[in-house]
Amino acid sequence: MTTAATNEATISFRDVRLGFEEGDIVHGLSFEVYPRETLVLLGETGTGKTLSLKMAAGLLRPSEGEVNVLGRKVSHMSERELLAFRREIGFVFQEGALFDSMTVEENVAYRLREEHVAEEEIEPKVREALRFVELEHAIDLVPSELSGGMRRRVSIARALITSPPIVLYDSPTAGLDPVTSQTIISLILRLRDTYGVTALLATHRLQDGFALANFFFDSKSNRVLPNSSKPEGKGEPDSNTRFVVLRDGKVFFAGSTEELAAAKDSYLQRFLV
């Protein structure tokens, strides 16, 4: 159990089941994410990672079980209550899901305009968010003019514009080249270590999870550094990063970075190779 685990869970799934016409996809899923923790949901395609994120955001309702987020029973809320609740979470979709009829500025400012924030306050906030993802120069472009990596970065800027306490990442590096993937992971590290957000990250790439566990963002040098650079640490993986491996819609493994790295199970070994 992590030190953070002594607090009440920010996100908790209890015996969650989700089925469609073709059968159940998620069977009895249970896990918790504690404040300031990053939980990496690892699994192959079709194991229920994206569905779990969507259930956490209230975009899908489980057939059975309970999903609690920020102390509220998301699985039992009405759509009207969910719309208000979702303003407290950031969601980074797999392909970015930017509104293609809007500019980058309009995409990032979308939530602020929905909340009727004064126009003179919007521009500095949008520029700050775009500066964070190093895309201030792209403010007037439209999504079709952006590369895949740039779209994900704009999506991260859009998710953090209201400084939500929770950010959900759906395969943020899927389909990207290694260099761009590294940029995205660096941004996630920055967001975690600068703002202390609680994160649930779905991915099929173990290296993303290991990068989150073994690196940190140093605000003094403004760089991502290995944990061994921490003056107080000995280079051990971040205890606030945990792993849940899904298989056939169930939790197959749950544990720390060290436990996953030491696992001898053949299914887990497939991710480690």
Binding site: R86, L98, R111
Partner: peptide, 12 residues
């Protein structure tokens, strides 16, 4: 392209 889900995720 998940834009409708993104809209819902942002409280719209």
């Amino acid at each position: 392209t998940e834009q409708v889900d993104a809209m819902r995720a942002m409280g719209t």
